[in-house]
């Protein structure tokens, strides 16, 4: 017996692939680059086709959501739908800079250093 779950075998209960679903949803290289820049994520040019394929697959997969009618349904941001608890306005933290800056890549005079920022 095989342990492999071929996702196609989930059909029709679990629609999976863009091919199963009949949606063509593809992200091209320029879109991948744009999103990567938005997320400040360096990716190798060689890997872009694979990202493009993977992301397109994932997006096609989540397209299934559009099958269901959600008219009038409130989004659920948190399972318990509780409300925000408020904290008393009091200082509870003390200077812990030396401890925190032990893990800092580059510091000087208590400041974190980054390449020159130009406004």
């Amino acid at each position: 017996m095989s342990f492999i779950i071929d996702c196609a075998t989930f059909a029709p209960l679990f629609l999976t692939r863009s091919t199963d679903y009949g949606v063509t949803m593809a992200l091209d290289a320029s879109e991948i680059k744009k999103i990567a820049h938005l997320a400040r994520l360096g990716i190798n040019a060689d890997d872009i086709p694979e990202y493009s394929r993977n992301l397109s697959d994932i997006l096609a997969f989540v397209e299934q959501l559009n099958v269901v009618d959600t008219t009038g349904v409130e989004p659920l941001a948190h399972p318990l739908e509780a409300t925000q608890r408020l904290r008393v306005d009091a200082v509870t933290e003390t200077n812990n800079r030396d401890n925190f800056q032990q893990v800092a890549p580059e510091i000087e005079s208590g400041l974190y250093l980054v390449p020159q920022v130009i406004e």
Binding site: T92, E93, R97
Partner: peptide, 29 residues
């Protein structure tokens, strides 16, 4: 003009030595 920050218990006093009033929450650890 609160005593502590909006989401942490660090002091809001102006003019402290750099990063001495930046607690774990403010640093986004």
């Amino acid at each position: 003009a609160t005593t502590s920050k909006i989401f942490s218990g660090a002091s809001t006093t102006y003019g402290a030595e750099p990063n001495t009033q930046a607690c774990a929450v403010d640093l986004g650890l």
